[in-house]
Design a protein around this nucleic acid. Structure first.
Length: 691
DNA sequence: GTTAGGG
DNA sequence: CCCTAAC
């Protein structure tokens, strides 16, 4: 029988994935809770770690084997589907199962450490560590070990423009040889079989534009059990449905048409599809192989080689780029980076870090902090420095026969991971639970220089959606696995994938809101008389927000990956969510004021003729929600706040047209004008109209 | 093809 | 946003 093991490295709240998607009715209530489960996206935590771990296991005899054996036993049952449980148990139970006692001990140890050490430990903390090492020894040797710590990965995040196609397999091989491994954007210097394979150190200017840079070190704590409050902030990807994400990508009609199909990629369904597809594929492949080889998993790295060259290329690029920043990255990777800085401890960091902490402290207030920074650091070449302990790995679905060997299991996992890596990864930045999509903003602007933010800063490695799997398993798209847990995938992995793909790949248009607002304010004048002006205004604005075509395409490129599957799977793509901008709302309100609520087609034509992505049904629905929004308390409203003024108009118009349904036709024009005049005053509008 | 509403 | 019934 086939044994299915689901590995989840998600964080808390990851339960969601395992739960079947709520029925529409349930989801609908979502506006409230929907966002709650937002952060479900599982980042690639330990992705690298996992790889390294596996590698180490294979090479290191005792400890690793033990761990793996433990796993094996865990799989004892035919079909074990382990749902994510308490986050603290994830790693150990899910995969790197180990004595719980050790775990707890480890945790306690950590907590007892002083701050500095804590962070250091955090760095070390990792499932891998647990597996291969004597935890306590690690703890004891915290600092020393750290400094000597050879294994590390350096990533120049800012430098990574493109997904890093890390070739795990290759990396591992080389790793085993003790070679310095450099894959794509990742540079691994794993000279020993250290238990801390993944350590990312990043350093770059906080503000590209200014000389004032902040140095900070960020360590992602990986220890599940750690009592650190901040562990919550761990890279959890904001799975929030694209709420705000796409809002900025509103675009005008022209381009939209051209790219519309792709644009829909973001669609929930698609995401779902892609997600399930993507994630399942890899395992699926394995599955296929497994069957063929009968338990012996046959590595399918056939295509891997092709990617290698690419990796190299990127690597080169990376290297070059990296050099540019090298000057500042003095913070020794070898323990040079002080835990202090990382931990935000009061103590000052190295000379190079000086002011670093202070900066953080003062950074609490965004605006003010900025000033202070510049003032104090103007002469400094401040850089943000931090170390990324590891990335979370999204849930992986592994399927292997019970008869498969542990080794094959390992390889399967490896292959799965590799497949993902091959597909390419993109880095996402999550700050305070929110995904930062504006690549153009400086760290300062983003608020990454804040001390507090350190805890809230996270990174995600998100798989690029690639045709990788489709080609391989084209024959049977959604086999058993799809049935396994299609729903679960929907939320976590899927969302991140697509969203990130789009957002990251595209330089986000600047401050949409601001622009819009400005524009909006200027528009009002044309209310009563011109319908056209309104339309025009909208259009331009929309365009301003429009995503650059190139970007769109790129993002879209992902979609094409498996259109077949879509059909086959009967998964009808869902349109991407495009929250109405204030500008659009205004246009809608005005149109309704003029035309009434029973003529959505006309409303569409009048105010959204150029907005191909807005159907009259959409407008109708939006109106519906607007009315609802206007009725609820501001605190209960979500999403981009709609000016109260507009809401008032909504209520006014709604009330008016409700009364005049029967005579809409006769009075529409008159009513429209009057309403407009009395837009803010519901009663006034009604009164004037009714009479 | 539109509307109107529930989901 | 989707889906449908009812124009």
């Amino acid at each position: 029988m086939v044994l299915k093991k689901r590995l989840e490295y998600g964080l808390h709240g990851f339960q969601v994935p395992t739960v079947p998607r709520a029925p529409r009715s349930a989801r609908r209530r979502g506006p409230n809770k929907k966002k709650i489960d937002d952060s479900q996206i599982c980042a690639f935590e330990l992705l690298a770690s996992l790889a390294g771990k596996l590698l180490q296991e294979s090479e290191s005899s005792s400890a690793s084997s033990n761990a793996s054996e433990g796993n094996n036993q865990t799989f004892g049952d035919n079909v074990i589907k382990q749902e994510k449980q308490a986050e603290d148990k994830l790693l150990k139970e899910e995969f790197f199962e180990q004595g719980s006692s050790e775990e707890s001990a480890f945790v306690s140890e950590i907590t007892s450490q002083d701050i500095d050490e804590k962070f250091v430990l955090k760095k070390f903390s990792n499932a891998v560590d647990k597996v291969n090492n004597d935890v306590k020894s690690v703890i004891c040797n915290t600092k020393p070990a750290f400094q000597n710590y050879p294994a590390k990965v350096e990533v120049g995040c800012p430098l990574i423009k493109e997904p890093c196609h890390a070739n795990v397999e290759n990396g591992i091989e080389r790793q085993q040889k003790g070679e310095k491994l450099e894959t794509g954007s990742l540079t691994k210097a794993n000279t020993c079989n250290s238990e801390h394979p993944m350590q990312l150190q990043i350093e770059f200017p906080t503000a590209v534009n200014s000389d004032n840079n902040v140095k900070l070190s960020l360590l992602r704590e990986t220890v599940p059990n750690a009592s650190f409050s901040r562990h919550r902030n761990d890279i959890k990807l904001v799975g929030s449905d694209d709420d705000e994400n796409f809002s900025r990508y509103n675009k005008s009609s022209t381009k939209v048409k051209a790219f519309r199909p792709p644009a829909r990629i973001g669609d929930r369904r698609i995401r779902k599809l892609l997600t399930s597809k993507y994630w399942k594929v890899a395992p699926k492949l394995r599955d296929c192989e497994v069957f063929r080889s009968d338990g012996g998993v046959k590595p399918l790295y056939n295509k891997r080689k092709s990617s290698y060259s690419r990796d190299r290329f990127q690597h080169d690029t990376f290297y070059k780029r990296r050099k540019l920043f090298h000057r500042s990255s003095v913070v020794s990777s070898d323990g040079g980076f002080s835990s202090e800085s990382v931990s935000n401890s009061p103590e000052k960091g190295q000379s190079g870090d000086m002011g670093f902490n202070e900066m953080f402290h003062g950074a609490a207030g965004v605006s003010s902090s900025v000033i202070s920074r510049q003032a104090s650091f103007n002469s400094k070449d401040s850089h943000v420095k931090f170390s990324i302990k590891s990335f979370k790995v999204p849930e992986l679905f592994i399927e292997v026969p019970e008869t498969a060997t542990v080794g094959s299991l390992k390889r399967t996992v490896m292959e799965t991971v590799t497949a993902i890596l091959e597909g390419g990864l993109r880095v996402g930045v999550v700050l305070q639970g929110k995904k930062i999509k504006d690549d153009n903003r400086t760290l300062q602007q983003t608020g990454i220089s804040s001390k507090d933010n350190l805890d809230n800063l996270g990174f995600t490695l998100e798989p690029n959606i690639m045709p990788v799997s489709p080609s391989i398993c084209a024959d049977d798209p959604l086999p058993s696995l799809s049935c396994e847990a299609p729903e679960p995938l929907t939320r976590s992995p899927g969302t991140p994938l697509i969203d990130s793909a789009i957002s990251d790949s595209l330089p986000e248009p600047p401050p949409p809101v601001t622009n819009i607002g400005t524009l909006v304010s200027s528009n009002p004048g044309s209310v009563s008389s011109h319908t056209d002006p309104l339309t025009d205004n909208i259009t331009p604005d929309s365009q301003a927000l429009v995503v650059v075509p190139a970007m769109s395409m790129e993002a879209l490129a992902v979609v094409p990956a498996n259109p077949k599957n879509r059909k086959a799977s009967e998964l009808v793509q869902r349109r991407t969510r495009r929250p109405f901008s204030v500008l659009e709302v205004e246009a809608l309100v005005q149109a309704v004021e003029e035309l009434g609520t029973g003529r959505w087609r006309d409303v569409k034509l009048r105010a959204f003729e150029n907005a191909d992505h807005r159907t009259y049904v959409d407008l109708k629905d939006k109106w519906k929600t607007l009315v609802h929004t206007a009725k609820i308390s501001p605190q209960q409203r979500r999403g981009e706040p709609v000016p109260q003024e507009l809401l008032d108009r909504v209520l006014a118009a709604h009330a008016y047209w409700s009364e005049h349904q029967a005579k809409q036709h006769s009075k529409q024009q008159t009513g429209a004008l009057k309403i407009t005049d009395a837009s803010a005053d519901r009663h006034g509008a009604e009164g004037s109209q009714s009479s």
